[in-house]
């Protein structure tokens, strides 16, 4: 049994990868990170071992592309913030608040939150991606979610809008 058509991979994992990119690089760069991820995945796909975990493979590529985007951005002058076009928000403000909170997290926490909570990777996989052990990944995930929750709590938001 060979690999499935790549179209199936895009269909099944495209939205997940976009959310992961969004959480790691933010709304402005998420589309570029997604595009580079799927182009690189398409290139390598025929050589992927048939029994591979496609989801973890994609997240690994997405992480590399996201980190590339962040490095390139730090070398560029600050871009003007624009609204994401691809993820359709129920409320635009909620999306911007979330990114505003995510960008305040230490990078390891932000990435852990993305790979565990958005991509659904188990902490053992997250630890393999980020280095360290599953216990520290679990801690980073829990701390990240706790910080996000307190930053996004209605009282904290009122505080910030004052």
């Amino acid at each position: 049994m060979g690999r499935e058509p790549f179209e199936v991979v895009v269909e099944r994992y495209g939205p997940m990868v976009l959310r992961v990119c969004w959480a790691v690089v933010g709304p402005t760069l998420a589309d570029d990170a997604w595009s580079e991820t799927f182009l690189a995945a398409l290139r390598a796909y025929p050589e992927l071992a048939p029994d591979s975990n496609v989801e973890a493979w994609l997240v690994t590529i997405a992480r590399n592309k996201a980190i590339d985007q962040l490095r390139a951005q730090s070398r560029r002058p600050a871009p003007t913030e624009r609204l994401p076009e691809t993820i359709r928000w129920e409320e635009h403000d909620a999306g911007l608040d979330l990114w505003d909170a995510l960008r305040r997290l230490p990078q390891k926490q932000r990435e852990t939150v993305a790979y565990h909570f958005l991509a659904g990777l188990p902490y053992t996989e997250v630890a393999r991606l980020l280095g360290g052990n599953p216990a520290s990944a679990r801690r980073a995930g829990a701390d990240g979610i706790a910080s996000l929750r307190s930053m996004l709590a209605p009282s904290a938001q009122e505080e910030r809008s004052r």
Binding site: V10, G14, P15, L18, R19, W22, A23, T86, I87, R88, W89, E90, E91, A94, G95, L98, A101, F117, L118, I145, L148, R149, L152
Partner: peptide
């Protein structure tokens, strides 16, 4: 988790 409300939104690819 805090994403459920925002990133649960429909994604148009």
């Amino acid at each position: 988790d805090p994403f459920a409300t925002v990133l649960g939104a429909e994604v148009d690819l």
